[in-house]
Design a protein around this nucleic acid. Structure first.
Length: 651
RNA sequence: GCCACCGUAGCUCAGUGGUAGAGCGGCUGAUUUGUAAUCAGCGGGUCGGGGGUUCGAAUCCCUCCGGUGGCUCCA
């Protein structure tokens, strides 16, 4: 074996080093400015601790907190630091798993008999973590035999969880990591020493089943995050605060958009007048867009014969997440509809279809009911009764790709209107046959066609294996909101299964019956969920075209009341949503209250305005704009009253 | 559904075994006001529901309901 290895570094230069040199030594020799920030290295795709000897030639990347992999190392180490703190504070605690996650880390633990943790205990654990980090002790990697590892967790430090993990690693060499007094079974990698983990923050505490299986015992999960610099921690906490400030449940109450009350039932939202404006405006926007694109709108009932869902195959798959059927007699049971598709299929099947009628695009704002588990309910984002912007496209196999393209185009258009960037995921099946219905060959075909469309459109996408619906693969649209949070919204699904199950046919040019293909699609997904997200995206500051109340007229004294009513009436006639505030309050108060309500425009009428025939305009988030004529205002309003208009305007 | 925590006026919250409170909102009146909250008065609560401990429970215990954070699930 050669005594020297060649390492190609990030700057493109290849240098020679003695075999067994550590990452730390390479960094110190060639990139001293990175030495303090480096958390590990990647060599030929394998991630190493900085202290590990490198044995082979190849490309070497130096990882810091700026790299995805570096952050994972950093947070994984922070999880160990938290574990050390927990062990110091709660002797006898048992550790299960403590991985890094997208934003931080958690550790699942079994607390000693009689001990419970609540959020109030977190600062104490954090203090301990800071104290331990200040000692700045190294993380050490220890290789032990499998037998020694098992002995350790059986005798010295009894821990059933670690033993269960070890049993899956039987016979393999095992690594432990130690920092200070804390030793943990761990594959690694870790930062060089605890001193890097100076700015931890523990975020929440939750229950979590061991291995995510509800048959297993419930462990206590503690979530946290950690940063190398204080400013990063502060920025993170600031963003979290901002997210709290935008919480749609809070804004929904303050702006009187919707109501959730146990009197009606958990997860069953009531749309208040303001929220109804937002929802109807969104519906009108999409309806108009769909009509332009050749959709026909339909309306179907909220319940349907249970047989319909047995035919579709949904019922056995999802019996647990449906409201129980209503039983009329032994032969007749009805279900609150959990989806619209079977109803739409009846429309297709109501008469013989010719290939000349296809594609048939049936759209419905269809309200559906699903019995979501109580712990899942969350404001408007997760509810038990919601309205899908649903449509089913029945087309020939030859038309499929063009139709998918048109649907992708519509979906992208829609999210552009709201200024939400979209990431696309192709959701394909995995090997678990029991999760899916239909013929394997048709699945392959649908997946191939979806991917071809994505490629032909030049989409950037990722592929999610195992994310498919039970009857077909999907294109999922994952949007990012104003805070950069990701939400899975729109979906396009290709379905060869339902046409079979419902025996759908069309007569082709050859005079013979053929099976159509169905595309299920919903750009918003659920109006409730989408509006919940939209409230947070806009922080309640709806753009003009969506705002429940677009302008409030504020007369300064009684002398302007008549003029105020006239102005409001004029604007209402022009189609705007306008109110008038004639209370005997000072202007300041009227403005303050209207600003709290996030009204886009305040139209102020005083003595001056009546004399000059103008309107003093104040815009939400901008302030006093000075005076305008009514004509100017109407022109501006007309420009703004268009979906997406605000994106080309200030404010 | 499971675990932890929480539930006091419309909203935000104080009150930890001894007569239920504040601010905002609401109502009534005064005030006629120029770009983020005028003044005064008046209402308003089975302290989430039920049960228990106690001379006495918003406060302690049990149970149910609802909410929050997660876990599991997601057509």
């Amino acid at each position: 074996m050669a005594e020297r290895i060649q390492l190609q570094l990030e700057n493109g230069v290849t240098s020679e080093f003695p075999r067994g040199i550590t990452g730390k030594e390479v960094v110190e020799a060639l990139f001293p400015e990175k030495a303090a920030a480096a958390v590990g290295v990647e060599l030929n795709g394998v991630i190493y601790d900085l202290s590990r000897p490198l044995q082979e030639s190849g490309r070497l990347r130096i990882l810091t907190f700026e790299d995805e992999e570096g952050r994972q190392i950093f947070w994984h180490s922070a999880a160990h630091l938290m574990a050390e703190a927990l062990e110091a504070l709660y002797p006898g605690i048992k550790f299960a798993i403590g991985p890094p996650i997208e934003q931080g880390f958690y550790y699942d633990v079994e607390l000693p008999e009689g001990v419970t943790l609540s959020a109030e205990d977190l600062p104490r654990i954090e203090d301990k973590m800071r104290e331990l980090a200040a000692r700045d002790v190294p993380f050490e990697r220890l290789e032990v035999s499998w037998e020694d590892a098992v002995r350790y967790y059986r005798e010295q430090c009894p821990n059933p969880y670690k033993l269960e993990i070890l049993h899956e690693l039987r016979g393999q060499p095992i690594t432990f990591y130690r920092q200070g007094n804390f030793v943990d079974l761990c594959r690694g990698t870790h930062v060089p020493s605890t001193g890097m983990l100076r700015y931890p923050k523990l975020l929440s505490i939750a229950g979590a089943y061991w291995r995510g299986d509800s048959r297993n015992p419930m462990l206590t999960r503690i979530y946290g995050i950690c940063f190398p610099e204080q400013e990063q921690l502060e920025e993170f906490l600031r963003l979290r605060q901002e997210a709290d400030r935008r919480d749609h449940r809070k804004l929904g109450r303050e702006l009187e958009l919707f109501l959730l009350t146990p009197a009606v039932g958990p997860g069953l939202p009531i749309w208040l007048p303001n929220g109804t404006v937002v929802r109807r405006t969104l519906e009108a926007f999409l309806r108009r867009e769909q009509l332009k694109r050749g959709y026909q709108e339909v309306i179907t009932p909220h319940i349907g014969n249970l047989q319909l869902y047995k035919t579709s195959g949904h019922y056995p798959y999802y019996a647990d997440s449906q409201f129980p059927p209503m039983r009329l007699d032994e032969h007749e049971e009805y279900l609150l509809k959990p989806m619209n598709c079977p109803h739409h299929h009846q429309i297709y099947a109501a008469k013989p279809r010719s290939y000349r009628e296809l594609p048939l695009r049936l759209a419905e704002f269809g309200t559906v009911y699903r019995y979501e588990q109580s712990g899942e309910l969350n404001g408007l984002v997760r509810v038990r009764g919601f309205t899908q912007d649903d449509a089913h496209i029945y087309c020939t196999p030859e038309q499929l790709k063009e139709e998918i393209k048109a649907v992708v185009d519509l979906t992208q258009y829609v999210f552009r209107i709201f200024g939400m960037p979209v990431d696309i995921r192709l959701s394909f099946r995995d090997e678990n046959e029991s999760k899916y219905g239909g013929d394997r060959a048709l699945w392959e075909r649908a997946q191939r066609e979806i991917q071809e469309v994505a490629d032909e459109l030049g989409l950037e996408y990722t592929i999610g294996i195992g994310e498919a619906a039970f009857y077909g693969p999907k294109i999922d649209f994952i949007v990012r909101d104003a805070l950069g949070r990701r939400w899975q919204l729109g979906t396009v699904q290709v379905d060869y299964v339902m046409p079979e199950r419902f025996g759908l046919e069309y007569i082709g040019p050859d005079g013979q019956p053929h099976r159509p293909v169905i595309i299920h699609r919903a750009p918003f997904g659920s109006l409730e969920r989408f509006i919940g997200i939209l409230i947070e995206h806009y922080a309640g500051n709806f753009p003009f075209w969506l705002a429940p109340v677009q302008a409030v007229v504020l007369p300064i004294t009684d002398a302007q009341h008549e003029a105020a009513y006239q102005l409001a009436e004029r604007l209402q006639e022009a189609g705007y949503r306008v109110q008038t505030d004639v209370r005997s309050e000072r202007l300041q108060r009227k403005i303050a209250e209207a600003e709290h309500r996030k009204i886009p425009f305040l139209l102020i009428l005083g003595r001056k305005e009546l004399q000059t025939g103008t309107i003093a305009v104040r815009q939400h988030g901008v302030g006093d704009l000075g005076s305008r004529s009514l004509e100017e205002l109407l022109r501006w309003f007309a420009e703004l009253n268009v979906p997406g208009a605000e994106r080309s305007h200030a404010g």
